[in-house]
Write a protein that binds this DNA or RNA. Structure first.
Lengths: 258, 258
DNA sequence: CGATGGATTGAACTGGTTCAAGTGGAGTGG
DNA sequence: CCACTCCACTTGAACCAGTTCAATCCATCG
C-alpha cells in the first residue's frame, strides 16, 4: 500500500509555514525514497508532508545506543540511512535481538510510556526523530496517519509471530535459511543490490542473538550452506543466494536429498 | 486503564435500537465483567455499549478450531468463557503456540486481510464475534475505540518480544518459571482462584509448544520445581506457587543456591 | 608490521530430545 | 460399582544438535 496519493483535507498550517515545510519535506525524505511503505508519504491537501516540520535529525556512529529499555518513549524514530538492531537482555547478559531495521523503517511505535527494548546502531546511522506526543496529537486530525501507524504495528506483530515459530521450532540450518531469505526481501526493497545479492551489515553475534544460536553455530551453518552450493560468501558481510528455491524449502523444514 | 468512564458523544442510533442494545449489552458482557481491559467498556453518551448490537455469539467444544491461517479475517473475537490457544505450524507438523487467551481477551486484531495463525478451543468456549469491517467503520466515529484496539495491539507486541527472549535465550527451567508466573498474572486478573493457585487448562503438549520444548522436558521441569519445593502440583492442571519470589528470580536466570 | 577483534574451525561436552516403558485418572459399559 | 480402555502425563535411558572451550585465521588499522 502506498499512501503517496492520499490527500488529507483540512491542513491547518498557514502559508508561510507551508513553504518552510515544503523545503523540509524534500530534505527529510531523501532517505525514504524507496519502494517501501513510509509515513513520510502521508500528505495534506497541498501535497505537503504533514510530519516533516516536526522532525529533528540525529546521527549515531556504529555501536552507539539510540534508546534503552529505561528511556521514556518520547520519540518515534525513522531510519534514513544505516542499520539498527533492537534487542532485549536478561540480567546475566544473555541477549535476544528482536529485529534489524534499515532505511525507511520505524521504531518506537509499539510502546505507550516506556520503550521495552534497546536500539543500537549497527552501522553509522541517520535517524529522523518525531516527538511521540505530537504524532499522536495528529491522529485525530489525520486518520490516515493513524491507520498507517496501526498498520505498521500490525505488520510487525505478524512478523514477530513468524519469528517465534523460528525460535521455538526450527533447526539451526532452517533458522539461517529463513534469515537469509528475510534479509533478501528487505534488501530488494532497499534496492541497493542485485536480487540475490544480500548485504549483512550486522556481525555474526548479532545474527546469533537474533536466531537464538551461538556465533559458532551461525558460522558453521554459513560454511555448510556454502559447501552445499546454496550460497556464496563474499567476506562476512555479503552473500549471494544461489538457489533461493531450495533455501525456501529448507527454511520451512523441507528435506534436501544428498 | 479503564474506559468504563469514557463517554463518546454523538451516538447515531435511534431510541428503539438503543433499548435493544441495552439488553444485549448486559447479556453480552457478563463474561467480561472482570478487572481487565475490555472493549465492551467503550460506551456511547447514554452509557450504552457501542459494540453489543454488532456481536453474534458462538460456542465451541474443546479442541474445535475457531479460525485457521487460511481464513479471511472477517471477525474480531472476544472470549467470554473458556481458554483458547493461538498457534502457527510448519509444513511437517511442528507447532509453535504463540499465545493462550482467556475470558476477556481479544484476537483477530493483528491482521489486515487474513489471519496468520490458527485459533483453537482448549476448553469449551463461549465467544463473541464482531464483524471486522463494522468495527473498523466505527473507528472514525469513536476514536477512543480505535485507541483501545491500538493499545491492545501494542501490548500484545510488547509481550511477544518478551516471549522471543524466552524462546531464544532461556533454559527449560527458566521457561517454565516464566510461564507459571505469567499464568499467575492472568489468573489473578480473572480472579477465579487464590493468588498463588494457578489453573492450567491447557495440556502439557500445549505448554511445550508454547515454550519451544518437548512434553517430556516440560513434565520433568514440573517435577523438578515440585521437588525443589517451589510449586505444588494438584493434578496436572492446577499448581500452587509456593515461592513466587524465587520463581521470579529463576525466571530471569538468577541462581538458586542449594 | 604487529596488534586488535571478528570469523572460522576443531574437539569435547551437555541440555534437551528421542525413544521406550510405565502410571494414573477419567470415562464407558457390563 | 468394578473392570477395562484410553490417553495424557511421567519416568528412564540413550542419543545428538548445538554449546562450550580452545586454537587459529584473517582483515583492518594505527
Amino acid at each position: 500500500m502506498n499512501l503517496a496519493s492520499v490527500h488529507i483535507p483540512g491542513s491547518k498550517i498557514g502559508d508561510g509555514r507551508r513553504r518552510a515545510n515544503k523545503y523540509l519535506n524534500q530534505k527529510a525524505c531523501e532517505g525514504c525514497a524507496s519502494k517501501h511503505i513510509s509515513l513520510c508519504n502521508v500528505m495534506d491537501n497541498d501535497g505537503l508532508n504533514i510530519l516533516s516540520g516536526l522532525s529533528s535529525d540525529i546521527h549515531k556512529k556504529a555501536k552507539q545506543v539510540i534508546c534503552t529499555e529505561d528511556d521514556n518513549a518520547e520519540y518515534l524514530f525513522n531510519i534514513r540511512y544505516g542499520a539498527v538492531r533492537i534487542s532485549k537482555m536478561l540480567p546475566d547478559g544473555r541477549r535476544q535481538v528482536t529485529g534489524f531495521l534499515f532505511a525507511g523503517d520505524f521504531f518506537g511505535l509499539s510502546c505507550k510510556a516506556q520503550h521495552s527494548y534497546t536500539a543500537e546502531a549497527i552501522t553509522p546511522v541517520d535517524i529522523c526523530r518525531f516527538p511521540r506526543k505530537k504524532i499522536v496529537g495528529l491522529f485525530q486530525e489525520f486518520p490516515d496517519l493513524n491507520e498507517r501507524v496501526f498498520d505498521m504495528t500490525r505488520a510487525e506483530l505478524n512478523s514477530t509471530h513468524a519469528q517465534m515459530l523460528l525460535l521455538g521450532r526450527k533447526t539451526a540450518k532452517e533458522k539461517l535459511c529463513s534469515f537469509l531469505l528475510a534479509m533478501r526481501k528487505k534488501s530488494s526493497l532497499l534496492a541497493k543490490t542485485g536480487e540475490d545479492e544480500v548485504d549483512l551489515p550486522m556481525g555474526r553475534s548479532d545474527i546469533a542473538d537474533y536466531l537464538g544460536l551461538t556465533v559458532e553455530t551461525v558460522s558453521r551453518q554459513f560454511t555448510s550452506l556454502n559447501r552445499l552450493g546454496l550460497i556464496e560468501l563474499d567476506g562476512a558481510h555479503r552473500v549471494f543466494l544461489k538457489n533461493t528455491e531450495r533455501l525456501s524449502t529448507m527454511a520451512e523444514g523441507g528435506r534436501i536429498l544428498s
